[in-house]
Design a protein around this nucleic acid. Structure first.
Lengths: 184, 184
DNA sequence: GCCGCCTTGTAGCATATGCTACGGCGTGCT
DNA sequence: AGCACGCCGTAGCATATGCTACAAGGCGGC
């Protein structure tokens, strides 16, 4: 019984290891031979366990999204964040050392999703959805506002800030200062 | 005189054509042989005029950024947009048929800039900077607000919205509705 | 012991990619 | 006419990439 499913177990372990790799080096690190070398195996094995690179990619993306959701959930375990602090809080979270890897792959996934790449599109949608749900759960919205819409707005602002933060830090800093004053 | 600089002129024409290509198909379309085929020449010629692929990339990115700035300027020629409409206006602009190509390459550039890719980093910074300057010029900010910071905040929100729009349309729609009500 | 299956290594293939070497063609200058 | 130089095509190289073919080793069941 364990022997029959050992393959699945190993596939999962490989997926986790590949997710580590992607989170610190980006999607380009998923080339079969280099990636396999990092894990101490061969491209031959990756194909054996995943069948095809596309399937491997799908598994790894799913893993990354799951980890991201778990990461978010872990940060706000039993904690509610006041609405006016959520944007700043999340922006800080995503630009911190722990959050940057997720932000970076998020950008890569989103960029490819924008070209009609189905596998990235589904991953991106899932990731954004999870992210938004997390905001809904972590913020206590005042009565009268639609949580999902308000959360989406916050998510958009956070996304914009971290995107600018990765490209034009001075512009991002200007935007952040604005968030500060708005929150006060 | 014209003969001596014919090379530079042709290089510029190639750059423009490559920019067209990139804007409609993405950065991956810049592989030498496929790109050259699209332009009716050979990879040999691209190397001849640009010297190296890296230089070609730099030229094309510069061209794309310049065109983007020109596009923005053209839309608001002699027009000022009220502050409370700028976010919605720009979001609409970038998700329109004319704007999407710019948004898509913007995401690609930003994603690569986030990994320490210098050439993309400089292009991304320039593009964000130009974008922000355009907002500063196109909006008449009330006295007492720092134009650059306010523009940066708007830019962040727009970025977030179009990013979500390309990945999770339903979330983006929720965010947009929020912008509408805030503007009213 | 032997057979069969799961796992894994070694080679190889077909294609793609950036770049180079070499040579031909035409134009303008002397 | 001859010659040099700018332009360009053909081949080729070295490497990378996804994937396949073949075979060897190991392990459990009969």
């Amino acid at each position: 019984m364990d022997g029959s499913d050992a393959r699945g177990a190993k596939r999962l372990r490989l997926t986790e290891a590949l997710a580590d790799l992607v989170l610190e080096e980006g999607l380009d690190a998923l080339s079969l031979r280099p990636a396999a070398a990092r894990l101490g195996t061969s491209d031959r094995m990756l194909l054996y366990y995943f069948g095809t690179k596309a399937e491997m990619l799908a598994d790894v993306l799913g893993c990354v999204v799951a980890r991201f959701a778990a990461h978010l959930a872990g940060v706000t375990r039993n904690v509610r964040i006041p609405p006016h602090q959520m944007v700043g809080f999340t922006a800080e979270l995503m630009t911190s050392e722990a959050g940057r890897p997720y932000a970076n792959v998020w950008f890569e996934i989103a960029a490819r999703a924008a070209r009609d790449d189905k596998i990235f599109a589904t991953a991106a949608e899932l990731m954004a959805e999870r992210w938004n749900e997390w905001i809904v759960r972590s913020v206590h919205f005042p009565a009268g506002v639609a949580p999902r819409s308000a959360a989406a707005m916050m998510l958009a602002i956070v996304n914009g800030i971290i995107l600018l933060d990765s490209t034009a830090p001075s512009v991002a800093a200007a935007a952040r200062s604005r968030v500060q004053s708005a929150a006060a």
